[in-house]
Design a protein around this nucleic acid. Structure first.
Length: 115
DNA sequence: GCTGTGACTCCTT
DNA sequence: AAAGGAGCCACAG
């Protein structure tokens, strides 16, 4: 039996494990799903997965920036969803967790940025 | 089966 | 801070 969508299922499961207010990078989510280096696969799953109740808005680029261009509908919607979960977003950027910060930082501090 | 594309990431100027 | 390039891999043509 082909494991055609095994990775996709793992990605969706990892996504479902995210708690409100918790954000991760595409690559980090891929790593949690047991698929290191498959960040682009995560992005594709978020874009095309038939499951539509996924917390896609909790996934950001590795530097904490939203993956969409400013002014797009997707960008605006992601910012709104994040703010609804008390995630501070400034100029399309969120502070990514440092390795030691983990549990204390359920709410991530905003990072000022020029953009 | 080869080529181009992309909601990515890392390294090197 | 910004830009270029390589690696990555599923998918469409």
């Amino acid at each position: 039996m082909a494991n055609r969508s095994a990775g996709e299922i793992a990605i969706v499961n990892a996504l479902r494990r995210l708690k409100p207010g918790e954000v991760v990078a595409y690559g980090e989510l891929a790593r949690r799903a047991g698929l290191p280096g498959r960040a682009r696969w995560v992005a594709r799953v978020l874009a095309y997965s038939p499951v539509d109740d996924l917390p896609w808005h909790r996934v950001l680029r590795a530097d904490g920036r939203i993956a969409f261009a400013h002014g797009t509908e997707a960008f605006t919607q992601q910012v709104q969803r994040l703010q609804a979960e008390h995630v501070n977003v400034i100029n399309g950027r969120v502070r990514m967790p440092a390795p030691g910060d983990s549990l204390d930082a359920l709410l991530w501090r905003a990072v000022p940025s020029a953009d």
